[in-house]
Lab assay of single mutants.
Amino acid sequence: HNLTITQGKLFFHYNPKLCLSEIHKMEEVSGTKGRQERNDIALKTNGDQASCENELLKFSYIRTSFDKILLRWEPYWPPDFRDLLGFMLFYKEAPYQNVTEFDGQDACGSNSWTVVDIDPPLRSNDPKSQNHPGWLMRGLKPWTQYAIFVKTLVTFSDERRTYGAKSDIIYVQTDATNPSVPLDPISVSNSSSQIILKWKPPSDPNGNITHYLVFWERQAEDSELFELDYCLKGLKLPSRTWSPPFESEDSQKHNQSEYEDSAGECCSCPKTDSQILKELEESSFRKTFEDYLHNVVFVPRKTSSGTGAEDPRPSRKRRSLGDVGNVTVAVPTVAAFPNTSSTSVPTSPEEHRPFEKVVNKESLVISGLRHFTGYRIELQACNQDTPEERCSVAAYVSARTMPEAKADDIVGPVTHEIFENNVVHLMWQEPKEPNGLIVLYEVSYRRYGDEELHLCVSRKHFALERGCRLRGLSPGNYSVRIRATSLAGNGSWTEPTYFYVTDYLDVPSNIA
């Protein structure tokens, strides 16, 4: 807008934040220059609390790290170098490059900038070799853009010569660093050979998330399962459950009422301010606690030095998902009996873990797994792929695949051998790939016309006998059925096997 004052003059007093240069501009645009008398524009009460600059400061050096910015700028000295009290560095987070010096300023003089007072450097006698002032900004957020400017702080001049310097606002972004852990990993099994893994992005990506790394490792069953005799009275049979499938998407929606109208769909109840505040506090606490764990609990591995020492970490090797089922080394339970199943799973520490690289999504279907087997899954978020990966501390989750139908069934015939004193040795093959492992066998036998009897055969007993022995049988026709019990439950009964026990007292003698 054009402003013209045809008559009258300007009068400025007691404006401590208004620089004289701005008042002189007002004289020019209003056409009143030359009308004012000496005392109409006070030299001592206008701009006496402001830094009124008329020179431009330029930054000469900028260096960044993930949490620091090192700045240096060209030296500046007023005509009387004693008038320079120091520099004021202003900075704040700036997602967009549209910041002005006066953003967030209120009537009390406060604003949204963080201000650092910096002492002037030592003055050199040689004007050509003056030290460049600077400042190291610490405690910054990774991968965050900051708006920065600097200006001088000078003393009051009796001659009211307006001098000083100020830089333009520059924008500097800190470097990326390792992201925080992925949030809320959930693993479920939808079949006997697959596990579905879902997660949420890290709360602090500290860069642009480029991919996720998912490692999985087959877990050995508890050692007590191999040692305890679950045929003993009072000892509860062990059981394991597989990871249940995901709930429906509708039930997972946030901010939804727990109660549904019987007449149909209901609208979600909005969260109160107290609920939102509580969630923010919980989120802040979780982030602080995660940072504490990362800094205190997890110790970084030592990389190899120039002395030739090897990095103890196993090298990563990509495998196809079809090879995942046989990740671990199978060892027989008892070496003397080769027909026992290889369900003991000690994992070799030198073995390469299978892994998958996930790009542009937060889910993965891990296939080719062994049925009813526990897996430990390790999830890392990465925001750099080359020249070397920059990934987060791992988040861990466990899951067990679903049982395989008929995996616990005894394959092959049940054979028998009759000894003296009416002892019958029953023999059968253990299931080759049971659900988890076989903890015991149930032997059901009966003599024709009598009630059915049951015998429990422990895992250890089966390994020693290759089956079991029935003792003290009365003469007669017998039928026997056997079924295995694994961590997933009972298998199917075998087809009945028949044998006849004679009275050993009636056996004919070869003595003449």
Rank of each mutant, 00 (worst) to 15 (best):
E290C: 03
S367I: 08
G476M: 00
R466S: 13
E217K: 14
N435A: 02
E362L: 07
Q380H: 13
Q429G: 14
D250M: 12
Y396L: 11
S284T: 12
G264W: 14
F462N: 03
T497R: 12
L277Q: 12
E362G: 04
E227W: 09
A335K: 10
A220P: 12
L225Q: 10
L379A: 05
S492P: 06
S305I: 04
P238A: 07
L213V: 13
S274H: 14
T401I: 03
V334W: 14
Q252M: 04
D503Y: 08
Y375F: 11
E351F: 09
N339F: 07
S479P: 00
N477V: 02
H425D: 04
V296A: 13
D408N: 13
L228I: 11
Q275M: 09
S348P: 12
L213T: 15
D291G: 15
A407I: 02
E388R: 09
Y500H: 13
V439N: 05
G306D: 11
E404V: 10
K406W: 11
S304I: 13
S283E: 14
K357F: 14
G374D: 10
C231H: 03
V359M: 14
E258W: 11
V439E: 07
S486I: 00
W242E: 09
N326W: 03
E258M: 11
K357S: 14
S492T: 07
V297R: 12
R459Y: 09
E265N: 11
L232Q: 06
S305K: 12
G472R: 06
L232K: 05
L321C: 15
K287F: 12
S262N: 11
K357V: 14
G467M: 03
T485Y: 09
G449F: 10
L228K: 06
V397F: 14
M402N: 04
L232T: 12
R483T: 01
Y292M: 08
N255S: 08
G412M: 13
Q275V: 07
K302Q: 12
H352Q: 13
I438K: 01
V324T: 07
P403T: 11
P349D: 15
V501Y: 07
T241W: 04
V443I: 10
I482W: 00
R218F: 04
Y230C: 10
N206A: 14
R286F: 11
A309M: 10
N490S: 15
K432H: 14
E227T: 07
H416P: 10
S268K: 12
N435D: 01
E356S: 07
A381D: 01
P270M: 12
S304T: 11
E249P: 04
F246S: 10
C266F: 07
L228P: 05
N360W: 15
A407Q: 15
S268D: 08
E310H: 12
Q252A: 08
P403F: 07
S274L: 07
V329Q: 07
L440T: 04
F372R: 03
G467D: 01
N255R: 12
L470P: 01
Y375S: 00
E430M: 13
V423Y: 08
A399W: 04
E430F: 07
S262K: 05
E465F: 10
T340V: 06
R353G: 15
Q252G: 14
V334T: 09
T210L: 12
S203G: 11
S486W: 00
R390P: 08
A335R: 14
C267T: 09
Q252T: 11
K406G: 12
K236T: 07
L440G: 07
C267Q: 10
E258T: 14
D503G: 05
S274W: 08
I377S: 02
K236D: 09
S305V: 10
H461K: 09
S458C: 14
F419Y: 02
E404I: 04
P434V: 10
E356P: 06
S239V: 04
H461Y: 11
R483P: 01
H211M: 15
E247Q: 13
E404L: 05
P238K: 08
H416W: 12
C468D: 01
V324E: 03
K302A: 04
F372C: 08
T333N: 06
P354M: 12
Y478T: 01
T401S: 04
E465R: 04
A381T: 11
H416F: 06
D409W: 05
T328S: 15
G467K: 07
T386L: 15
W216Q: 05
D311G: 09
E362A: 09
S262T: 09
A335M: 13
M402V: 13
V457W: 03
S458F: 05
F298D: 14
A399S: 10
P300L: 04
S262E: 01
E417Q: 13
Y441A: 00
P354I: 12
R240C: 14
I377T: 02
V359F: 08
R313Y: 09
P300F: 14
Y259V: 09
E221G: 15
T485G: 02
E442C: 11
R370M: 13
G472D: 12
S203N: 15
W216P: 05
P205D: 15
E451F: 10
P508K: 04
N360E: 14
K317G: 08
K406T: 11
F226S: 08
E221L: 12
E389P: 09
D311S: 14
G489D: 03
T303S: 10
R447M: 03
K236A: 14
R390C: 11
D229S: 09
G467E: 02
T343E: 12
L437I: 13
E290K: 07
H416N: 06
S474Y: 12
V424Q: 02
D450L: 04
P314Y: 15
E465L: 11
S304F: 15
R376H: 13
Y448V: 06
E495W: 12
S474D: 08
L426R: 01
R286N: 03
P270S: 09
G322A: 14
R318I: 07
K357P: 11
N477Y: 08
S458E: 09
A263P: 11
T502I: 04
R466L: 08
H294E: 06
P496Y: 15
E452M: 05
V324S: 09
M402C: 15
Q275E: 09
S320I: 10
D450T: 10
A394H: 14
F355E: 07
